[in-house]
Computed example of a mutant assay.
Amino acid sequence: MRKRTEQEWIRLLKESKELDPDPEYVRKTREKILSEARKSPSSIRKRSWKTIWPTIMAVCLAAVLAITVLNYQVPISQPSSPTSSHPEPVSKPIQVNKDTEVFIYNTHSWESFETKKINGYNRKKNVQTVAKSLGHYLTQESVPTTIDDTNYTKLLMEKDIDFQDSYELSRKSVQKAVQAYPKVQLVLDIHRDDTIGKKEKTTIKIDGKNAAKIQFFVSNTHPSYEENLKVAEQLDRILNKMYPGISRGILKEDERPYHDPVSYNQDLHPGALLINIGGVENTLKEEERTTKILATAIKHALNEQ
């Protein structure tokens, strides 16, 4: 049998009469369509849930991220005040105690140890480490202590300030401390001797082990310096009674007019002293041994008052 061409099929369709479907066929077809229509909502819901589930998860994740971001506060830097020629110290005391009786700081914060250089500076082996050690042992002696950990040497370098102005920076911290701690009895600026080649001058044997010697410095450039001198003499006496020779005594500045501004902050409080603990060639272990002894001596001195 020959197959009809496309043109022939088109012609036949045009010439054919309109179809008249069987009524029974129409009825059954209608019922089938209605039946399928009743089933369709369930299937649509299933397909819809599968479709929107990933979207719901994405929205939830976005909400969590948004809450996290909103709760995070970005720190805003505060501009420095342009009214002062020297910036305020930027660090806060590492310990704060309103009952403070001893306040410790380091004007020359990078004065270092275990070196042969007079002006040797070390960011780790320095007088700030010694100050913290002294604070630790004072706390063990139940002496309320605050340590100012401001790095004045670093601040000088960052702000390009002359080294001779170090005391102008530390002075501001001492002024605040005297006001903040009404019970303070001692304000100690911890340094070390810069003597080179004579470690025996800054070292003593105690119980078979080396320890650093102590030296007090009192400035007489202010009218009430004798009050500071009395405190230094008291500590010198107690130390040498405990371990004869551990204190090298008191170094007094040569007489100068009282209007000289360099008082090493000792005019701010009668218990303000500059203390050299050891020298550049002493080790931190030797320094630590001495801070423990000094803490005990300070405890005795406070009990005498």
Rank of each mutant, 00 (worst) to 15 (best):
D189R: 01
I147C: 11
A63G: 08
S85G: 14
Y105R: 04
W9T: 07
L34E: 08
M242I: 04
L34D: 09
M157Q: 15
R47V: 12
I277A: 03
P82Y: 09
V231H: 05
S173Y: 01
T100Y: 00
V262N: 14
F217H: 13
N122Q: 07
R45D: 08
H86G: 03
T203P: 02
H108Y: 05
S84D: 11
L188Q: 01
I190W: 01
N265A: 06
I104C: 00
S109L: 05
V96K: 15
V174I: 11
T107M: 03
D267R: 03
K50Q: 12
K299F: 00
L235S: 04
G271W: 05
K3V: 13
F217T: 09
K205C: 05
P54S: 03
S263Y: 08
K50V: 10
R237L: 09
K201A: 11
Q234G: 03
N303M: 05
T83G: 10
L70F: 13
T29V: 13
V127F: 03
L12E: 09
T29S: 15
E88A: 11
V26R: 04
F217M: 13
H222L: 12
Q179W: 07
E6D: 08
V231E: 04
K183T: 12
Y121W: 07
S247I: 03
N240P: 04
K132D: 08
I214W: 00
K285G: 08
L268N: 04
T296L: 06
R2W: 02
S112K: 03
R47T: 06
D162K: 13
T129V: 10
S80T: 15
R192N: 10
I33G: 08
K199G: 11
A232C: 05
E287G: 07
S81G: 12
Y105C: 02
R123G: 07
G135A: 05
N122E: 06
N220V: 11
N282C: 01
N126F: 02
Q175F: 05
D189P: 00
I161G: 03
Y225Q: 08
K176E: 14
P23F: 00
F217K: 11
L61K: 04
N240I: 06
K201Y: 07
P93W: 06
K176F: 07
Y152E: 02
V174S: 01
N220Q: 13
K252L: 14
E253L: 12
T100N: 01
A272C: 09
E255I: 15
L235I: 06
K205S: 15
T68D: 06
I206F: 01
A211K: 00
V174D: 01
K46A: 08
R2A: 11
R4L: 10
T290E: 02
S16G: 13
M242D: 10
V96Q: 10
S84H: 13
V102D: 01
M57V: 15
E8W: 03
E253M: 12
R2E: 13
